[in-house]
Design a protein around this nucleic acid. Structure first.
Lengths: 357, 357
DNA sequence: CTGAAAGCGCTTACAG
DNA sequence: CTGAAAGCGCTTACAG
C-alpha cells in the first residue's frame, strides 16, 4: 500500500506538507495543495487511521452505547447518530448492552474506552457509581440521551418523561376513564433504567390531579417489550375487576397490551382503551394512540452537540429551529440543563370513552 | 495515562515482555506473567489501540454494513453480530447505508476501509462493479449475509429466498387461492437489492407449478417497508378485480398490506389473505402468517465464520448443529457454496381459504 | 524465556 | 508557506 512518503516524493514536498495539505490545513499554498492532492489521487493514497490516531492523539471515533438495538427507539436514534457522525468524518463504534451484565462491565470500563474513542454517547443507560468513576478517570467528553441520572459535565438530550406520561394519562381521564392501569419497566432491572420510573410518576401525578388515588393493583411491572406488555396485561385482566384503560410505558408494551386484550376476548377500544409512548413505526398501522417522541431528532441533536466541541469536519453550525437554547463555544458547562425535546399526543383508534355500563 | 514502559519498569521486565504477557502469548514464564499482570492492574494500565494496531498490523475491528438499521432483519442481525464480535475482542464499526448514494460511495471505497478494519460484513448489499473492484484492491476478508451476488472469496450466509417465496405462495394456493398478488422490492433501486428479485421468482415458479400464469397486474413494486406495503396494496385494491390473497416480500410490507386492506373496508383474512417473510417480532401480535427466517442465527454464524480465520480471542470452535458443512482450517475457498439456513412456514390468522362466492 | 532495537506511518512543534 | 526531526506507544523479528 502506498504511504505518505510515496505521496511526498511524487509531489516533491515533505511528508509534513502532505499531511497538512490532505487535512485541509490553511497553511498550505494553493499550488502545493493541488500537487499533493493530485499525487495522492494518482497513487490511490489512503491515510492509515492507526498511524494518524497515534501521532495525532485523536481517534475521530465515538462509542455509542444502547440497551438494545432491536428496539424501535434505539434503532431510530442510532440511525440518526450514524448519519451525523459519518457526515463529520467520525466512526461509530456500536455497543449493544443487551441486558447482559458481563457485556456492560466490559464496555463501561476505563480500559475499554481508553484511547479508543474521543467521546461517548450513552443512550437510556443511567450509570452506576463504579461506571461513573471509570468514565471520570478517562475525562472523556460525552452526551446522554434519555438517561435518568446524567453524567456530570455531559450534556443531555431527552424528552420530559413525566410530562409525557401525564399527558397520556390525562387523555384517558378526559375520555372519562377512572380505572386506568399502568404497565411498565423492568422489575429486576439491575441496569437502573429510570425512564419507567419517570413515566410512572407522571401517571400517578395525573391521577392525583384528577382526585384519583393510584391503585397499586392496577400498576404492573414487566419488560419494556411486546412480550412484557402482553404478560403484564394478561396479569392485569386476570385480577378481579379489569381496568377500562391501560397506559403502557412504551409503544412496544402497548402493542403487547392490545394483543393480550384481544386474546382475553375483549375489544380495543370498546372494552379497554390502550395508549403508549413513542409513536413507533407500526403504531399508525395498528391504530395505536400514543405520545409521539422525536427519536431521530434526539439522535441527531445529541450527535451534533457532541461533535460541536470536538470540531467535526463539514459540520454545519449548531442552531436553527431544533436547538432550544444558545450554547457557548467552549465545552458544555458541568451543570448544563438537559435539552428537552417536545412530545405530542397522537389520538388514533385505540382510545375511546369507557362503555357506559 | 500509564504506558507500557511504566508497567515494564514496575514489573522489572522489558516492554516486549509486558506486551507478550498481556496478550497471553505462551512464551512467558508463569512467574513473569504474574508480575506483569499485577503491575498492569496496579497501574490501571490499558493498551493504546492505535499504537497496538500500528505496530501489530491488525485492527481487531470489523466493518458491518447494513441498508437500514431500523428494519427488523438488520437490527436483529446486528445485535447477534455485535455480541459475537465483542465476545472475541473485536470492535464493530457500524455503517448504515440508508439508501443514500453518497453514503454508499463514501463507505464502499478503498480509502475508507483501508487499514481501518480487518474484515467486512456486508448485509443484504449486493456490490456494483466499481465497489467490488475497490474491495478487491484491499484484499480484505469478508462475509456476506443475504447478498444477491456474493463477493468472490467471501463466504455467504443466507436463506433460500426463492424457496421461501415458493412456500409462501404455495400455502396460499393450497388454501384455494388463485388470484394471488405479490408486492415487493424497490423499483428505482440503485442499490441492486436482489432479495426481492429472488422472492418474485419463487412466487412465479409456485404459480406456474400450479398451472397459473403470473398476472403482471397483480405484481406491484414498492418500498421494502410498512409504507411501501400499504401503498402497493392500496394500488392493487384500486385496480379492477382485487386479489383474494397477497404475498408480501417481507413482513413489514405485509403489515402495511393488512392495514391497507382494512382501510379499504375489507377484512383479513376473510376478504384478503396476507402472508409475508421474516417472522418479525410483531408478526405474532398481528396474527400475520409468514415464512420465518433465522435472523439471529444468520448474524451469529456469519460473524463466527468471519472470525474463525482471523483468530478471535475466546472464540469457541465452529461446529455443532448450526453449521451445515465442514470447513477447512484455511481461509474460505473462493467459490465456497453459500451457507443456507432453513426457513419455516408459520400459519397464523392472516391466511384462510378464499370466500366461496 | 527474555531483552535491545528497529519500525509501524503518521502529526506536531520548532525553526526558517 | 515549508521541511527536518522527534515522537506518538506499541509489536516484532532477531539474538541470546
Amino acid at each position: 500500500m502506498t504511504k505518505i512518503d510515496d505521496v511526498a516524493r511524487l509531489a516533491g514536498v515533505s511528508t509534513a506538507t502532505v499531511s497538512r495539505a490532505l487535512r485541509g490545513l490553511p497553511t498550505v499554498s494553493a499550488a502545493t495543495r493541488h500537487r499533493v492532492l493530485a499525487a495522492a489521487e494518482q497513487l490511490q493514497y489512503a491515510v492509515s487511521p492507526s498511524a494518524s490516531r497515534l501521532a495525532g492523539g485523536r481517534t475521530a471515533t465515538v462509542a455509542v452505547i444502547v440497551p438494545r438495538i432491536t428496539r424501535w427507539f434505539f434503532a431510530t436514534v442510532v440511525e440518526a447518530v450514524e448519519e451525523t457522525l459519518h457526515e463529520s468524518g467520525y466512526d461509530l463504534l456500536l455497543y449493544n448492552l443487551g441486558g447482559r451484565e458481563h457485556t456492560r462491565q466490559r464496555v463501561l470500563r476505563t480500559a475499554n474506552l481508553h484511547k479508543r474513542v474521543d467521546a461517548v454517547m450513552l443512550v437510556a443507560t443511567p450509570l452506576r457509581r463504579a461506571e461513573l468513576a471509570a468514565l471520570t478517570v478517562l475525562d472523556l467528553p460525552g452526551v446522554t440521551i434519555s438517561s435518568g441520572s446524567g453524567v456530570p459535565g455531559w450534556p443531555c438530550v431527552r424528552i420530559d418523561d413525566v410530562a409525557a406520561a401525564r399527558t397520556a394519562t390525562r387523555h384517558l381521564l378526559d375520555l372519562g376513564h377512572r380505572r386506568i392501569a399502568h404497565i411498565s419497566g423492568d422489575p429486576d432491572d439491575e441496569l437502573a433504567f429510570t425512564t419507567h420510573l419517570d413515566r410512572r410518576r407522571g401517571y400517578r401525578e395525573a391521577l392525583r390531579s384528577a382526585g384519583i388515588e393510584p391503585d397499586p393493583s392496577l400498576d404492573v411491572e414487566s419488560q419494556f417489550s411486546i412480550d412484557g406488555g402482553e404478560q403484564a396485561t394478561a396479569e392485569l385482566l386476570a385480577r378481579g375487576e379489569p381496568p377500562t384503560a391501560i397506559f403502557a410505558a412504551c409503544d412496544e408494551m402497548a402493542m403487547g397490551a392490545m394483543s393480550a386484550v384481544r386474546d382475553a376476548g375483549l375489544r380495543v377500544p370498546q372494552d379497554v382503551s390502550v395508549i403508549g409512548i413513542d409513536d413507533h413505526d407500526l403504531s399508525r398501522v395498528l391504530g395505536l394512540s400514543t405520545i409521539a417522541q422525536p427519536a431521530t431528532e434526539q439522535g441527531r441533536l445529541a450527535a451534533r452537540i457532541l461533535l460541536d466541541p470536538l470540531g467535526g469536519r463539514d459540520l454545519p453550525p449548531l442552531g436553527g429551529q431544533i436547538v432550544p437554547r444558545p450554547r457557548g463555544t467552549g465545552p458544555a458547562e458541568p451543570s448544563a440543563a438537559p435539552v428537552i425535546l417536545p412530545t405530542r399526543l397522537v389520538v388514533r383508534d385505540s382510545t375511546a370513552p369507557p362503555r357506559a355500563d
